[in-house]
Amino acid sequence: MNIVNFTPVPSFIGGILIGISAVALLYFNGKIAGISGITKGTFNFKERDTLWRILFFIGLVIGGLFSTRFFESAISNVDQLQINTKLIIAAVAVGIGTAYGNGCTSGHGICGLARKSKRSVTATLIFMATGFITVFLEKLI
């Protein structure tokens, strides 16, 4: 193992900002900053109380657009992604997996761990493990 491209300072600062965002959402609105849960609710038109989710979603898109233009460490490489079967399989797996497992990196990994939820600890360990295994296997092929 070689350690490469490590950016401890911006990554830690960015993490703190994500934490503050999650704290604000809980302190003011009583909500968990789980991106997959919020997204699921944004596009579930039967559910009531969707406006806050829609606004959070729009905020994510605006913030994402803004940060790559104004912060040096905010590099996006998504314009280089290839449209292929792998991309579609990954999107389906992330979509089904986070909806079925009720959370993703944010809901389970950041908010759930802070609530000391056993379900979130389990979920985080599992998605980290299958993520590591997937990258490992992909290199073998």
Binding site: A90, A93, G97, T98, T130, G131
Partner: peptide, 8 residues
């Protein structure tokens, strides 16, 4: 399943 998609 999520981890697999995330890793890909």
């Amino acid at each position: 399943l999520f981890g697999i998609g995330w890793g890909l």
